[in-house]
Amino acid sequence: MADDDITRRDQAGEVGAPRPAAEYESLLPGKSGLGEILAPAAGFGVTFASMFKPTVTEQYPYEKVPTKPRYHGRHQLNRHPDGLEKCIGCELCAWACPADAIYVEGADNTPDAQFSPGERYGRVYQINYLRCIFCGLCIEACPTRALTMTNDYELAGPTRRGMIYEKQDLLAPLGDGMLAAPHPMVPGTEDDDYYRGDVAGPVPEQIDWVAQWRPEDESLAALRPAGHEQSEAR
């Protein structure tokens, strides 16, 4: 670029913007006569016209416009149809997380406390929503489809600590016919059967187990109406 093409301030000698090649000239044809006189008021026409158009404003807190179905909102830890947790505490979500927002600790499933099919369950599951960027890589990493995202986005809160969601905050509520964990797996099944979707719901053995060890469990009430000793949930 030659020196002539750029402006140069006289005093400081700084380099400025390129010098315009020529004086500015509008490409639009100029108005004439009445048009030029009414030009300042013409803009109101737009205003008036829009008064008769439908309003675009969303009345957010009063009427919530649904998000797109695949919107990345708050996470959810899902359950198998019989109520066992899908999360096996493998930490792959934590590994995938680019913002280091997820903390997981696994633990042993024991006969006394079987939370998920197989050997391992997520004992600690925390998502720090002040780190999470809702990118969804954790969802892609999850080998059991335990972690998915909801469309819920109302997350603001007054403390940092409150923005760390624990496992109980993230677990999906019990669906119809689900039995709250912990309880044993469906007899005769392996964890693979759960992943293949071969388990349709709690079986009487599981319901009896919960009835024996946690008779006050709320999920039991729906599955086992008072006075019935056998359930027909399967």
């Binding site: 997350l155 809160g157 940092r160």
Partner: peptide, 17 residues
């Protein structure tokens, strides 16, 4: 006073906050 998660939060989230 209020922390608002999201990256970035959508306007509704800001209104919520």
């Amino acid at each position: 006073d209020i922390y608002l998660p999201g990256c970035p939060p959508r306007p509704e989230m800001l209104l919520n906050a």
